[in-house]
Amino acid sequence: MIPALTPELILYATAIGLTTIGLAGVVLSVHLFRMVLSLVIAEAGVNLMLVLAGYRWDAVAPILTSLGEQPAMVDPVPQAMVLTAIVIGVGVQALAVSILIRIRQRYATLDRWEVAERMDADIAATAGTPRDVSQEAPLGERPLPPIPAKRVDPSGSES
């Protein structure tokens, strides 16, 4: 039973598809920057979903063009919400990228599991405990490969 391919279905499928692709990307990626990009995709999907929540076929943008009788207008509230959500997304992404720059300078990698391992090692070293085996990669006590001597950037190692 395949439903008819209406514009309605296409738009909803796009919104939900983008959200799903983004979320799947976050879960499946091993590179931290790709995870952030996947989040951007997912956010685009939900923003489309929000706009759709107030959309009408027979209506114009909610701006008065003349006094007197008005044509039907789309719901202005979701548009305002999307504006807010987009700006919030931009702020979070910029912050994410700046943290990623620092991590890359310190750990010389952006691989998700390697960063997690090094973080666990760092936390354990600060606390002075034997390292807990990582929850996500229970492969026993893997010795960490040494950070390559030739760093990607010599200048930004410490701020």
């Binding site: 983004g22 979320l23 979903m49 919030i88 979070v92 943290i99 991590i103 973080m119």
Partner: peptide
């Protein structure tokens, strides 16, 4: 400012990003 803090922050940020996508949905 420690390396571990940055790593913890980005992992928290990504998880919380998933959370905000779901909330908006």
């Amino acid at each position: 400012g420690t390396s571990a803090a940055y790593a913890a922050t980005i992992r928290y940020l990504i998880l919380s990003g998933i959370g905000s996508v779901l909330t908006l949905f």
